[in-house]
Amino acid sequence: MAAALEQFIEGLQQASTLDDLQSKVFELRDLYEVEHVVYHSVNASGGQYAALTYGDAWVDRYITEGYERIDPVVMGCFQRFHPVDWRRLDWSGKVTRDFMDEAKDAGVGNQGYTVPIRGPSGQFAMFTVSHGVTDEKWTRFTEVHTRDLILSAHYLNQKALEIESGGTTKAPGRALSPRERDALTMLALGYSRAQAAESLEISEHTLRVYIEGARYKLGAMNTTHAVALALAQGRLVF
């Protein structure tokens, strides 16, 4: 269902405030047909921002009780960077089980997948989808969607950082190099990937990585979209 990811990224383009991101998170929940989507970011100076579909009661309860201190998801993901199926975490112990029961009662679901994100300049975020389904169904869901979920998490994070920094300035790491512009230009001109790689004197593997990297930097949902965005930003030269 790459279509869900593309639809989400396309919608993200229109987001210009943190409130917009909140509605995007709800859209994402509907696209993936899961119970909940949670995005939580902490920047280097400790500033926090969250966009989530949980009900207020559960959020208040979580904060009041300081559940981040016992939540296996937080403990397993904080300052790390590998995505985690909740089933791989340690849920043993009475305190943890009680917490889980409460989360279940709050409608979080019995399954979850969390993507920790390490951004530029010491920023850290966690992106989670949670759902109430059997192990078998969740295994199937993650097999199909994991890559898209990781990408959704990072595109969302990138957009949040952009909005936080005032929206106009792109982080320096997101500027396209001349080489990436060349690669996009060739594809815009209708060259096949093989032809583009040949005329740029790089391998098709390298071309793929350059194009995927450029798509990510531009916040584009696919190559055509990346070309359009780069053109709109005056980044392509024919």
């Binding site: 990781i150 990408l151 790491g173 080489r179 350059y210 990297g213």
Partner: peptide
Amino acid sequence: LPTTAPCMVNDHFTHLTDGVTISHPLI
């Protein structure tokens, strides 16, 4: 290390990558 955060290739070796920073969630 994830390439979405500071890492060696992008901090010190872009002269070997045609100036391209390799930054992607799946790399």
